[in-house]
Amino acid sequence: MREFKFRTWDKQKKKMIQFEDMKSWTFNIFEDDKYVIMQYIGSKDINGKEIYEGDILETGNDAGVVEYGGGSFMYNCAKLIITGDEVLGNIYENPELLKEKNIEF
């Protein structure tokens, strides 16, 4: 059974909030536009790091942003996430990687 986990980007504080830190929250985060919710895709990168929506992945010379579409998680809007991918960062904490890796998002 797949594990459902989330992380949240706090737009005001410009800080990533991990799933474990959200368990005690008592308000409805899903109705608050101060946050961006990202889901864990259910797999890890080559280094054992959990992969979430919004992560920037790299395989060899190719890089892209993890998105959900067409019933699966993909990056570069076409490539399925495969073994050997590495999380470089994410679009919120590391936006400079988009330009550096020439990723259109």
Rank of each mutant, 00 (worst) to 15 (best):
T83W: 14
D10K: 02
G70H: 06
I51V: 12
L57Q: 06
E50M: 14
L80E: 06
I91V: 13
E58Q: 15
G64Q: 12
I41F: 12
D85E: 12
D85P: 00
G60L: 15
S43C: 15
T26D: 13
D21Y: 09
F6W: 04
V87G: 03
L98C: 07
G64Y: 09
Y35M: 06
G48F: 13
A63W: 06
D10P: 02
K5Y: 05
G54M: 12
Y68L: 14
N94T: 08
E96N: 04
V36M: 03
Q12G: 05
N47Y: 15
N90A: 11
G64K: 13
K49Q: 12
N61C: 09
K11R: 15
E53Q: 10
G70W: 10
G42H: 12
D10M: 05
S43N: 09
I46F: 11
D55N: 14
E86A: 12
M1T: 05
R7L: 05
E104A: 13
K15C: 06
C77D: 13
S72F: 14
Q18M: 15
R2N: 08
M38S: 09
F105G: 02
M22N: 04
F30S: 10
D55H: 10
K34E: 01
E100M: 10
C77Y: 15
K15L: 13
T59M: 13
I51R: 03
D62A: 08
T26K: 10
S43Y: 13
T26S: 13
E58M: 12
V36H: 04
N102I: 11
E53F: 07
K34I: 00
Q12C: 03
Y35A: 02
I91S: 07
I81H: 02
G70M: 13
Y68I: 10
E58R: 13
I17R: 00
K34N: 02
K79A: 12
E3L: 14
K23D: 01
G70S: 12
V66I: 12
F30Y: 14
M22A: 11
K101R: 08
N28H: 06
G64C: 14
D32A: 01
